[in-house]
Nucleic acid binder design. Structure first.
Lengths: 127, 127
DNA sequence: CAGCATCCCAACAGATACTG
DNA sequence: CAGTATCTGTTGGGATGCTG
């Protein structure tokens, strides 16, 4: 383990350059709703309405644009069934699952430590 | 490995609840500039001016507020030396290093795959 | 050098209404 | 059910100027 940042620099160059591919993709997947939608889909395939209920607080507009973005990036696949009433399912692609393999440990750590972190905020006298 | 989301749910409850601690902390560390500042400090201690140059494109305002936030969360420590001219150094705390241990594999993967991801965007006909 | 204060704007995000 | 359209507003964030 102990991946160094220097190694990332060597491997793929600019992480700190404006507009570099890495920054763009990071912005997509680390966005407020991007993470939560990806997390929701980690459990398995979900329909639009299920996603909406699962990711509490997301608006239809944000769910739509987040899904379009993740779909365009190849992390999520959308399948529409020609039925009445309409049924549409969303699931992670292989690339999406690869991504989530790396993101889950991070989210897990945050979930386990978020309480202490915010306690630190209070001590520091911040909101 | 293969951490499941269900496990996270069991462990620490709500990831999908509005305003829950996990979401708040995720928003701090997954923010556009939060990630990049944390990454920069993963290499080692940096001064204000070095950070500003390192994280290309960040404004003084954003650097300041990002650092205050990460400091309040206990991820970054600020050390001010009473000299003339002033010297201030920023470095990761133990908690910050724990966090980055989980975040680096993710960033590394993104850096390695960002090219392909954006190529997918082009094929899909999106910006 | 390290930063805070101020002004300002565009983009992101919420609410509502409507449609195939 | 699964969206799109539109309208509005909040705020993230940039530019500038000033201070210890």
């Amino acid at each position: 383990m102990t991946v160094s940042l220097a190694e990332i620099r060597r491997t793929s160059g600019e992480v700190f350059t404006e507009g570099c591919p890495t920054r763009v993709v990071l912005d997509h997947i680390m966005s407020k709703w991007g993470v939560l939608v990806l997390l929701a889909l980690t459990d398995g395939t979900l329909r639009w309405g299920e996603l909406r209920r699962e990711v509490e607080g997301i608006s239809e507009k944000m769910l739509a644009s987040t899904l379009r973005q993740l779909e365009a990036d190849g992390f999520v696949e959308r399948t529409s069934y020609p039925e009445v009433p309409p049924r549409v399912e969303y699931e992670l692609t292989d690339r999406g699952r690869e991504l989530m393999e790396r993101m889950l440990p991070l989210v897990e750590w945050v979930a386990a430590n978020a309480g202490d972190v915010l306690k630190a905020d209070l001590i520091a006298g911040r909101g």
